[in-house]
């Protein structure tokens, strides 16, 4: 059984127009956790809460047996946090920012940092603003991995990257998790990224966790169904989420328990994107103007 690295218990943060509502989930050692939900669902707020950047109203966050609230400084030594890529002090050179950053970490490994720079082909003489988006992410990873972070929290690390850079970064995540035992929590709107590398999925909707499970378990709860529109009865149609028609064909997503009802249709494994659309858009609202 894997060791639990991070545990969130009933984490609540209330704002005037939004509440992060009793968020609970855990992250095990060496796992990649895809943290998904639509914009404004509470992903970034949760990530900031884990790092103590926002003050939570209720609940607790435990990293390796230490409380984020009480052992703030210690815990930050063990976490690498990236919002997109590194974009602080854009006019400073990479080497200047690194020299300042590393002076704060008790477990900084300079030789390892040099290896990561070489691996990511990063030029220390460049200014931060001269780095591409992909390079900014890689630089952030190089810093996080050089201070021996046990947990990487990455908010949209692949946004704005071209497919090749994205693939490189994802490949890197998988190697880091597998070879170093680092736990990675990352949020993304590019759901196909999660198909490639996520071991677990945590789904958040309107500040509440809808489901936290392994990727297989998460996906096994839903199926994709396709068939001919003419053959579809209205009672069956009502069970289909994110229903759409193209010519005489229809497609949609159903909860796995309806599988037998759709035995005469093409029923296949739903993708994470299908599931997300099912959860967010659900069954068509009858009062919709469309």
């Amino acid at each position: 059984m894997s060791n639990t690295v991070l545990e969130l218990i009933d984490v609540t943060k209330r704002y005037a127009s939004f509440t992060l509502d009793h968020v609970s989930f855990h992250a095990d050692e060496g796992r990649i956790i895809g943290f998904i939900g639509r914009n404004g669902a509470g992903k970034t707020t949760t990530m900031k809460a884990i790092y103590g950047l926002i003050e939570i109203d209720e609940g607790s966050i435990i990293l390796d047996g230490k409380s984020v609230k009480k052992d703030e400084q210690d815990i930050k030594n063990d976490i690498g946090l990236l919002f997109g890529g590194i974009d602080y002090y854009p006019n400073q050179k990479v080497k200047t920012l690194t020299s300042v950053t590393k002076s704060f970490y008790s477990n900084w490994d300079e030789a390892l940092y040099r290896k990561w720079l070489k691996y990511f082909e990063l030029d220390e003489e460049k200014r931060i603003k001269e780095l591409s988006n992909g390079m900014k992410v890689k630089y952030g990873l190089a810093v996080a991995l050089s201070h021996g972070a046990k947990l990487l929290i990455l908010d949209e690390p692949t946004s704005g990257l071209d497919p090749v850079s994205r693939d490189e970064v994802l490949d890197c995540f998988m190697k880091i998790a597998k070879m170093k035992g680092t736990t990675i929590i990352f949020s993304t709107h590019v759901i196909s990224d999660l198909e490639k590398c996520a071991d677990d999925i945590v789904y958040i909707q309107k500040g509440k966790i809808v489901k936290a499970a392994t990727a297989e378990e998460f996906k096994s709860g839903y199926l994709k169904v396709e068939g001919e529109v003419n053959s579809l009865t209205s009672s069956l149609k009502d069970k289909i989420g994110h229903y759409r028609e193209h010519g005489n064909k229809f497609a949609g997503t159903i909860p796995a328990e309806y599988k037998n009802d759709f035995a005469s249709y093409d029923v296949t494994e739903a993708s994470l994107e299908d599931i997300m659309l099912f959860i967010e858009r659900g069954v068509e609202d009858e009062e919709s103007p469309f």
Binding site: Y51, L53, K76, N77, Y88, Y89, P90, F104, Y105, H147
Partner: peptide, 11 residues
Amino acid sequence: NRDLLYTSILP
């Protein structure tokens, strides 16, 4: 320069 966030992210 997003110094508040940068410094807060340091240990």
